[in-house]
Amino acid sequence: MTAFFRLVVRDLELAFRDGGALGTALGFFLMVVAMMPLGLGPDLNLLSKLAPGILWIALLLSALLSLPRMFESDFDDGALEVIAMGPLPLELIVIAKATAHWLTTGLPLVLLAPVLGLLLNLDLASAPLLVTAMILGTPAISFLGAIGAALTLKAKRSGLLLALLVLPLYVPTLIFGISALTNQILNTGGAGSSLMILSAVSLFALVLGPIASAAALRAQMQ
């Protein structure tokens, strides 16, 4: 457990020290949300109806930006080889790295989301629900994203490929993330079941992501 903890802390330190990544993601999030009213027109009623969808999609795209970095630098400079010699199985190493990715990308984006919601006339009362849904749903982004990041380590044009591979995997998270909020807005209730499914998808990603990513990393370290 100590080793796992040390790896997460080191990844967090490196993320903050290399900087840039978080700023880029947050800035991109802001930009995408800010472009939406320009494209859709400034109708506040329309915007507040579309706000959950816009926020979720913008969040997915922003999180995608930093995904390639999850394994890339450690793979390129040989650190992953040394880490693989340590006491942790590769699956746990992936969990540590995806956790660090979530803490440095997913969580800050989630915390920014209600603020950006103000730009879209999102009802303030639904902000807690938005944050809850996103906190439950975003781990899936990091853990399913780990699969794409691991598969495209040695690929040409890996950024675009990563988006192609990973975005379809985000469909369930997107659908239930949005339905948690739209149910609320339409007063049809049922946010609870959406939140439960959202958590289930994240838990599922927590199992599938490490197994598939570790297999992909193993194949590439040969």
Partner: peptide
């Protein structure tokens, strides 16, 4: 997009299996 054919086939196979597990879930969600 992966030059090493051997590696490419293994990684593609991993993706294909991930797809098997996720397709029903995507299907169910939509």
């Amino acid at each position: 997009s992966i030059e090493d054919e051997l590696l490419a086939s293994r990684l593609t196979a991993i993706l294909a299996l991930v797809g098997v597990i996720l397709l029903p879930i995507i299907k169910f969600s939509v």
